[in-house]
Amino acid sequence: MSTLFEQLGGAAAVEAAVDSFYRKVLVDDRVSHFFDGVDMDRQRDKQKAFLTMAFGGPHNYTGKDMRVGHAHLVARGLNDSHVDAIIELLGATLRELGVSEDLIGQVAAIAESTRNDVLGR
C-alpha cells in the first residue's frame, strides 16, 4: 500500500500545485490581506513546505512551529473562517489537478489537524 504522498505524486505534485494554490490565496478576499507585503519567493517556499506536509510527505513541522509561525497573524485577526478558506482553496487546487475526492479528503484532514496550533489554541 503506497502512502498518501506517493499516491498524490510526491514532490512533483507539490511543485505542480504550489503556484496554483498561491494564486488562489492571493486573489481570495477572505485571506489575501494576510499576504500583503511579504517576500513572494520566501512565501512560495513556505507554501511548498505546507503542501508537502498536507500531502502526507516528509516535514519537520511541530505544533510549536505552527503556533510561533502564525502568532503575528492571529494578532491580526486570523480565525477559523480563514483556516476554512485555506482548506477550501487547497481542495480546489487539487480538484483542478484531477485528484480524487477521497485523496482530497485525506489532505483536508491533515490540514485540519493543524487548526488549533495555527490559531494558537
Binding site: V18, D19, Y22, R23, L26, V27, G37, M40, D41, R44
Partner: peptide, 15 residues
C-alpha cells in the same frame, strides 16, 4: 518590483 511580481504571477507566469 513587488507589485509587478505579483501581477505577473497572477497573470500566469510561473514563480
Amino acid at each position: 518590483v513587488q507589485k509587478l511580481k505579483k501581477k505577473l504571477f497572477l497573470s500566469g507566469m510561473a514563480m
